[in-house]
C-alpha cells in the first residue's frame, strides 16, 4: 500500500488506471467472446478426430494439419487464389472509373451516388447470384440478346465456368473496391492536376505520374478488401460454378456440412487464415517500402 502511495502520481493515477481498465472492459469482453473464444474452440477442434461411428473424439493430434498440407490440396488453393486475384483485379478495374466519376464529378449528388453503390446490399446476396443464372444460361437474357443482334450463331456456354465464377465474385465485391478508391480520389487535390497540365503533361501521363500514385492507398485497401472475402467465398462457386471450379471455401463447407469432418475443416480454416495473414502483411510491407521509395 505504502509503495503504491509513494509511487509517482499517487493514488489518483492508480484510480485513473482502474477507470481506464473499466472503460476498455466492454471492448475486451467483446473481443474475448466473439474473437478469442470461437477461435480457441476452432483450434481445439482441429486437434480432434472423427471415429467410424461419426463421433468427435479429442485425440490431441496434428494429423489434420498434415492432411491440409497434403500436396493434393495445392491445386484447389491455387485455383482459389487465382479466382480471388482476378476478382480483385477486375473490381479495381471497374471500381476505379466509377469512384473517379463519383468523387470528381458527383457534385452535390455524391451521397446519393454512394448510396446507389451500396444499394445491391439491400437484397440478399443469394438472390442476386441466382439472378446471374438467369442472365447467363444458354437460353438466358445475354445469349438471347447476342443471338438477336446476330453477334453469335450458337449460344455461348457461360454458366458453370471459371468465367461465371469470377464474374459473380467481381459483381458481388465491387463496392468493397469502389469505396476505398472513392475515399482516395476524393482527397486528391485538384490543383495538382492543373499543375501537371500546366507543366505539359498529357492526361495519360498525369494519371500515371500523379493520380495513380496518390490513389495507391485506396488501390491497396480496395484490393485487399476484395481479395480476402473472395478467397473464402463458397456461395458463388457453388451456384455459378461447374464441376472443376470449386474453391477452398467449398472444401471447408463440405467438411462441416457434408463429410462431418469438423476437425479437418477447422485445420483447413486455420491454415488458410495463417496463409492469408502472412501474405497480406508481406504485401503491405512491400507496398509500404515501394511507397517510401517513391
Amino acid at each position: 500500500m505504502s509503495a503504491a502511495t509513494s509511487a509517482p502520481g499517487g493514488p489518483r493515477r492508480i484510480a485513473s488506471r482502474w477507470v481506464g481498465l473499466l472503460l476498455v472492459a466492454p471492448f475486451l469482453l467483446y473481443v474475448l467472446t466473439f474473437l478469442v473464444l470461437p477461435l480457441a474452440s476452432v483450434v481445439v477442434l482441429s486437434t480432434h478426430q472423427v471415429n467410424d461411428q461419426y463421433h468427435l473424439e479429442p485425440a490431441w493430434t496434428l494429423d489434420n494439419y498434415q492432411r491440409v498440407l497434403d500436396p493434393e490440396n495445392l491445386p484447389i488453393l491455387l485455383r482459389s487464389a487465382r479466382y480471388a486475384g482476378l476478382t480483385s483485379f477486375f473490381c479495381l478495374l471497374a471500381g476505379y472509373p466509377l469512384a473517379w466519376f463519383i468523387a470528381r464529378h458527383g457534385g452535390r449528388h455524391k451521397a446519393l451516388l454512394l448510396l446507389l453503390v451500396m444499394l445491391p446490399f439491400w437484397t440478399s446476396y443469394l438472390v442476386r447470384i441466382f439472378s446471374w443464372m438467369t442472365l447467363l444460361q444458354t437460353e438466358g437474357l445475354l445469349n438471347g440478346a447476342l443471338l438477336g443482334l446476330g453477334l453469335i450463331r450458337e449460344p455461348l456456354s457461360l454458366l458453370n465456368t471459371p468465367f461465371s465464377v469470377v464474374l459473380g465474385l467481381t459483381y458481388g465485391f465491387l463496392p468493397f473496391a469502389t469505396l476505398p478508391l472513392y475515399v482516395a480520389l476524393e482527397r486528391l487535390d485538384g490543383t495538382l492536376l492543373e499543375a501537371a497540365a500546366d507543366l505539359g503533361a498529357r492526361p495519360a501521363t498525369t494519371f500515371w505520374k500523379v493520380v495513380f500514385p496518390l490513389s495507391l492507398p485506396g488501390v491497396v485497401a480496395g484490393g485487399l478488401l476484395t481479395f480476402v472475402p473472395a478467397m473464402g467465398d463458397f456461395v458463388t462457386p457453388e451456384i455459378l460454378g461447374g464441376v472443376d471450379t470449386l474453391m477452398i471455401g467449398n472444401l471447408i463447407q463440405q467438411q462441416f456440412l457434408a463429410s462431418y469432418d469438423w476437425p479437418f475443416g477447422s485445420a483447413l480454416s486455420l491454415v488458410l487464415m495463417g496463409l492469408m495473414l502472412v501474405s497480406i502483411l508481406a504485401f503491405l510491407k512491400l507496398v509500404g517500402s515501394a511507397e517510401s521509395l517513391a
Binding site: M118, F121, P175, F176, L179, P180, V183, A184, L216, P217, G218, V220, A221, L224, L225, L281, L284, K285, V287, G288, E291
Partner: peptide, 16 residues
C-alpha cells in the same frame, strides 16, 4: 507498414 493504407482501412470500415 504503409501508414496511409492503414488510415484508409481504419477510417472507412467496409460498411454493411
Amino acid at each position: 507498414m504503409s501508414e496511409p493504407v492503414l488510415r484508409v482501412l481504419a477510417a472507412h470500415p467496409p460498411g454493411p
